[in-house]
Design a protein around this nucleic acid. Structure first.
Length: 480
RNA sequence: GGUCCCAUCGUCUAGUGGUUAGGACACUGGGUUCUCAUCCCAGCAACAGGGGUUCGACUCCCCUUGGGAUCACCA
C-alpha cells in the first residue's frame, strides 16, 4: 500500500506541542514506509484566521526537520494545498451529493437552529438537527448552508491506536457541508481532500473521534473508501487535566527554539510523550524513531506535559553534542558583552559550561563573568556574608592573606591548566588550608559568584591578566 | 444530560495470567579528596474501588468511582 500521511492544521495560531506531536507521528509513519508526508492548510474559517500563522506553522515544521513532500509553499501533484484554493472541488462534490438527494439547503436561520438546540439542552437531550429536517427544502442557492442528509446507523470501525470502536445511530446527524459564506466546513472539506490527495492514514487528535461516525456516513454517501484512522490522545497541561492549550504558557514550538532548545531534543521528548518502543530507552534520535515508531504502541490515555523532563532531555542532547556543532547554535545566546571576544575564547567558555546547560538561554547567567568584570559589590557581599560553611570558618583577614598568596603563586605561571593546578595545589599544602576555603575564596574573587565551572579551567580560560587583576581587586575590597 | 474514550510510582511509562511490579524525570542521601553541574551508587514512591472468571490476576469480564472528548455556519 502506498502510504501517504498528512498534517492539516488551520492557520489560527502557532503550533503547540500537541499539534507538533500529531505532525511528528504522521511524518514518522510516512518516512518509515518511504511514503509521502503532506502539509495541507485548513483555512476555511476566515474569521479565526491569523496573519502569519501559516508561516509559523511552516517554520515550526521545518525547524524540527519534519520536511513535507507536498505543501502550500512547495506544491505537489495534488496542488493546491490550501483549502481556500480548492473551493471549486468542494462545490463539485457537493453537487454530486445534491444530485443523489444526500444534501439539501438549510432553510432555518441561525436563531431558529439555536432555538432547537436550546430546547434539546433544556430537555437534557443531545441536539440532533435531523429531528428538524425540513420535508420540502428549497433549492440550494449557495446563500444558505448546505447540509448533509445523513443515513443514521450504528458504526463499528478500527482505530490504529484505540482499537475497535463503535457507536449507535444516535450520533449521526445532518451536519453542514458548505457554510453560507461559500466555504466548506472541516467536516466536509477534509474528507474530500484526503480522498483526492490519496491520503492513506488520517492521524489526528482525540477531538474528532466523536464525529467519526458522521465521516463514515459521508464516505459511504460519496462512494469513497475510508482511510486508516489513528487517534492521538491529548497532551495535557501541567496543572490540571485539561487538554493543553495556548493558555498554558510557552508551549509554542518556536518559543522553545528561541529559548535554546535543540530540535532533536524536542523531537525526542515529544515522541516519548505518549509513545515508547517497549524497551527502557529514554532518548531517541530521529533515525531511531523512523525505524522504531509504531502507531500501535501509542498510549491510549492523555499525557501530561512535563517541563522538567524536557529540560533534562535537552540537557542530555547538549552534553552529547560535539563542541563544533554546539558552538554555532550558542552564537545568538551569548551575553551582550561577549561581542568583543573572539570565537576561540567563546568556544573555550562554552566547553566549560556545556555540561551544566539545560537550554541555551541560560548561557548569559552562566558565563557573564567571562566577558565582564564581576560587580565589586557582589564580591564584597559574598565575602562579608559567606554562606559556605567552610568559608565562614575563616576570617576576612585570613581570606585576604590567602588571596595575596594565590596571586603571588600564580604570578609566574604560564597559565596552562596543568600549571595552575599544580601551583594552587602546592599552595594548599604550603599554607595547610582546606580547598573548600582557598578555592572558594578564589572563585568569589574571580567570578563574583558562589558557583562556577571548575576553578582551574575557569582561570585558564579567563587568562592570566584578568585573573590576577581580579584577584588584586578582591584583595582591595577586603582591605576595608 | 446523551454518546464515546481512558485509568500502573507526583510525572512519562514497561508489563499482555504466575515478576521481589522494571526504567526514566523529579525528590532525598552518599561518592567523584573545590562550589555548582555532570557522572556513579543508594533510597523514596504505583497497579482507583468492588465483584466475578481462574489453581492463580496489574493483566480477561462486569459494576462503581474518577478523568477526558464531543453534542458549532471552529477546526
Amino acid at each position: 500500500m502506498k502510504v501517504r500521511t498528512r498534517f492539516a492544521p488551520s492557520p489560527t495560531g502557532a503550533l503547540h506541542v500537541g499539534g507538533i506531536r500529531t505532525a511528528l507521528f504522521a511524518w514518522l509513519v510516512a518516512r518509515q514506509a518511504k511514503g509521502q508526508f503532506v502539509l495541507r492548510l485548513e483555512d476555511t474559517d476566515k474569521k479565526r484566521e491569523q496573519a502569519g500563522a501559516e508561516e509559523q506553522i511552516i517554520n515550526s515544521l521545518k525547524v524540527l526537520g519534519l520536511q513535507y513532500d507536498e505543501g502550500p509553499d512547495c506544491g505537489g501533484q495534488f496542488a493546491p494545498y490550501r483549502q481556500s484554493e480548492r473551493l471549486e472541488s468542494y462545490k463539485q462534490w457537493a453537487q454530486k451529493l445534491i444530485d443523489k438527494g444526500r444534501a439539501y439547503a438549510d432553510p432555518y436561520t441561525v436563531e431558529e437552529v439555536q432555538k432547537f438546540r436550546d430546547e434539546a439542552q433544556k430537555a437534557k437531550k443531545p441536539f440532533l438537527y435531523r429531528n428538524h429536517r425540513p420535508t420540502q427544502p428549497p433549492k440550494w442557492n449557495g446563500k444558505t448552508p448546505l447540509r448533509f442528509q445523513s443515513e443514521p446507523k450504528p458504526y463499528k470501525w478500527h482505530d490504529e491506536v484505540l482499537g475497535d470502536l463503535n457507536t449507535g445511530p444516535e450520533v449521526v446527524d445532518d451536519f453542514i457541508l458548505i457554510k453560507s459564506d461559500g466555504y466548506p466546513t472541516y467536516n466536509f472539506s477534509h474528507i474530500i481532500d484526503d480522498a483526492e490527495m490519496e491520503i492513506s492514514h488520517v492521524i489526528r487528535g482525540q477531538e474528532f473521534i466523536a464525529s467519526t461516525p458522521n465521516y463514515l456516513n459521508l464516505y459511504e454517501a460519496l462512494g469513497l473508501e475510508r482511510p486508516i484512522l489513528a487517534t492521538m490522545p491529548h497532551i495535557l497541561g501541567p496543572e490540571g487535566k485539561k487538554k493543553l492549550s495556548k493558555r498554558d504558557g510557552a508551549k509554542d514550538v518556536l518559543d522553545y527554539i528561541e529559548a535554546g532548545y535543540l530540535p532533536e531534543a524536542l523531537v525526542s521528548f515529544i515522541s516519548t510523550l505518549g509513545w515508547n518502543d517497549g524497551t527502557e530507552q529514554e532518548i531517541f534520535t530521529v533515525e531511531e524513531l523512523i525505524d522504531k515508531f509504531d502507531l500501535k504502541k501509542v498510549q491510549r490515555s492523555g499525557a501530561k506535559f512535563d517541563e522538567q523532563r524536557l529540560e533534562w532531555t535537552n540537557g542530555h542532547f547538549i552534553r552529547e553534542m560535539p563542541l563544533n556543532k554546539l558552538s554555532p547554535i550558542a552564537e545568538s545566546f551569548w551575553p551582550e558583552a561577549a561581542e568583543r571576544f573572539d570565537e576561540q575564547y567563546k568556544k573555550d567558555v562554552l566547553s566549560l559550561v556545556q555540561e551544566r546547560l539545560k537550554f541555551m538561554a541560560e548561557l548569559p547567567q552562566l558565563t557573564s563573568f567571562f566577558f565582564s568584570e564581576p560587580k565589586i559589590s557582589e564580591v564584597k557581599e559574598l565575602f562579608d556574608n559567606p554562606t559556605d560553611r567552610q568559608l565562614k570558618s575563616a576570617s576576612k583577614l585570613q581570606i585576604k592573606a590567602l588571596l595575596v598568596e594565590s596571586a603571588k603563586v600564580l604570578e609566574p605561571s604560564d597559565f596552562t591548566e596543568k600549571d595552575i593546578t599544580s601551583r594552587l595545589n602546592g599552595l594548599l599544602e604550603q599554607l595547610n588550608t582546606k580547598p573548600g576555603i582557598l578555592f572558594a575564596a578564589i572563585r568569589i574573587a574571580i567570578t563574583g559568584s558562589k558557583s562556577s565551572p571548575q576553578l582551574f579551567g575557569t582561570l585558564r580560560v579567563l587568562g592570566k591578566d584578568k585573573s590576577l587583576e581580579r584577584l588584586k581587586r578582591a584583595i582591595e575590597t577586603l582591605r576595608s
